[in-house]
């Protein structure tokens, strides 16, 4: 009985001490990185505003109002109105909903598919590796823009617009992630702790999920954060040329496409500057967060 109490005491003592897990160490380092923390706060604020837009704004963003077109910024319309008389401020926030959703969702899908394929190819090796990597090469060589345009046109009307785009982008973009994950797994599986895991009776699934993936997770997370920036740009450019999100749904790319009109571009900057700045700052912030994560996970950096 005596011994048991002692052990519990020891437990309590340790639990109150600082946590030395590699995740906790990385978190501490990340919190100390000011630029990354500012960027993260900005992203969180922007996401929060976008998510809450329908609740804080009392504007019908789809309503066309021909009496109030192309109004410059005023106290009533903070960012003015566009050529259909819609409030630009409201549309920027609503556009954030769509653009951020597409960025986040397609990043998650791409990372999930890429990680599963890369991990299996890297760990199992042999014929399965050959097959999966040829599949990856195949996906990587697709002409991306053409395929998105074609697939989107075929699928539109059958599935709701935004999710069609997310699906199409994801299915065409996982190649790079799969390759990176595979190469990291190939390097990591040579460590003796993988042999040890096999010898203590872990199934191949458990070896991958519990021993390999946590050790390559830092790379995957950094990769995913940078990928999200790319995905937002992809959405914007596709919408800009008119093949992304359906034109009636506000997204930053759709709003920018108004700038194709030279009169808007030259004389009515309030219509296209807000979405432009939103995209720029979002991507900048995501990249700073990504860099911060990279530093935090790197045991050699003391920043």
């Amino acid at each position: 009985m005596e011994v048991v109490t002692n052990k519990n005491d020891a437990e309590r003592k340790i639990a109150s001490q600082s946590n030395h897990s590699p995740w906790a160490l990385a978190r501490k380092k990340f919190i100390r990185n000011k630029l990354a923390m500012v960027s993260l706060s900005f992203l969180m604020l922007l996401s929060l505003l976008s998510i809450l837009a329908p609740y804080i704004l009392n504007v019908d963003i789809a309503r066309v109002d021909f009496l109030n077109i192309n109004l410059p910024p005023s106290s009533e319309h903070w960012f003015g109105t566009d050529s259909n008389g819609r409030d630009v401020f409201a549309r920027t926030l609503y556009g954030g909903r769509v653009s951020l959703l597409i960025g986040l969702a397609s990043t998650l899908c791409v990372t999930l598919i890429g990680t599963i394929i890369g991990a299996i190819a890297g760990y199992v090796g042999g014929k399965i590796d050959q097959f999966l990597m040829r599949l990856t090469d195949f996906v990587l060589t697709f002409p991306f823009t053409v395929f998105v345009v074609v697939l989107n046109t075929i699928l539109i009307g059958k599935v709701s617009g935004v999710w069609t785009l997310i699906m199409v982008i994801s299915l065409l973009s996982w190649g790079g992630t799969a390759r990176i994950v595979r190469s990291k797994i190939l390097a990591e599986k040579e460590n003796e702790y993988i042999l040890a895991a096999i010898s203590v009776g872990c199934s191949p699934f458990k070896v991958i999920a519990k021993h390999l993936l946590p050790n390559v997770a830092s790379t995957i997370i950094v990769q995913a954060s940078l990928l999200m920036a790319v995905m937002i740009v992809v959405e914007s450019s596709l919408s800009f040329i008119g093949f992304g999100v359906p034109a009636d749904t506000p997204s930053w790319g759709n709003m920018l496409s108004e700038a194709r009109n030279s009169d808007v571009l030259q004389n009515k900057p309030w219509i296209w500057v807000p979405p432009c700045l939103a995209i720029t700052f979002t991507i900048l912030s995501i990249n700073f967060v990504g860099e911060g994560l990279k530093d935090a996970f790197n045991p050699k950096s003391n920043r």
Binding site: S21, P22, E192, A196, S199, G201, S203, H211, N215
Partner: peptide, 24 residues
């Protein structure tokens, strides 16, 4: 084979590489 592994175990050469850094 996994069932049999229970009866034979290994102590590895490299004490740095043989423990998973992410595990308590």
């Amino acid at each position: 084979l996994r069932k049999m592994r229970k009866h034979f175990q290994m102590v590895f050469q490299d004490p740095y590489a043989s423990l998973n850094p992410m595990q308590m």
